[in-house]
């Protein structure tokens, strides 16, 4: 170990699909990363829309037209699902970090809680924001 030579090592995702069977624990972990990073798209769109509202005139019309179009609806609805998933998976991470729920049965159950819970919370949010 004192004098390590640089070795060509494979990078992280090389196992997936080829040697490693997908399972709830790994898929739910992977989804946390995907949803978290994908959320930047809706932040860009949302901040553009806020900037448009601040500047007014044509700037708002342009940003608002995109944000409330079918494309905007698609991005924000998927982001809602993504943010609730990331939210629940994040809470699960904190729970794991505290040393709980690490047996396979509980971990797999918590994966389903994240997936089903995110769908339920998304529908609930879409209803609540109407009022």
């Amino acid at each position: 170990m004192a004098d390590p030579k640089p070795i060509e090592r494979p990078l992280s995702p090389f196992m997936l699909g080829q040697y490693y069977r997908f399972q709830m624990t790994s898929v739910s972990s992977l989804l946390t990363r995907i949803t978290g990073n994908a959320l930047v798209v809706s932040f860009i769109l949302g901040v553009w829309w806020l900037l448009g509202a601040a500047l007014g005139g044509g700037a708002f019309d342009a940003a608002n037209a995109v944000a409330t179009s079918w494309f905007g609806d698609l991005v924000f609805t998927l982001s809602l699902l993504g943010i609730w998933y990331h939210y629940l998976a994040g809470l699960r991470h904190l729970y794991f970090d505290a040393g709980h729920g690490l047996d396979i049965e509980t971990a797999e159950m918590l994966g389903w809680v994240c997936i089903i819970g995110s769908v339920v919370l998304t529908v609930l949010t879409l209803i609540v924001i109407q009022f």
Partner: peptide, 20 residues
């Protein structure tokens, strides 16, 4: 993460309600 756990639900309502 803990800070956002408190902030996000309220923010989703405020933003979602204003959008449109």
């Amino acid at each position: 993460a803990v800070a956002l756990a408190f902030l996000i639900p309220t923010f989703l309502y405020v933003f979602g309600h204003a959008l449109g």
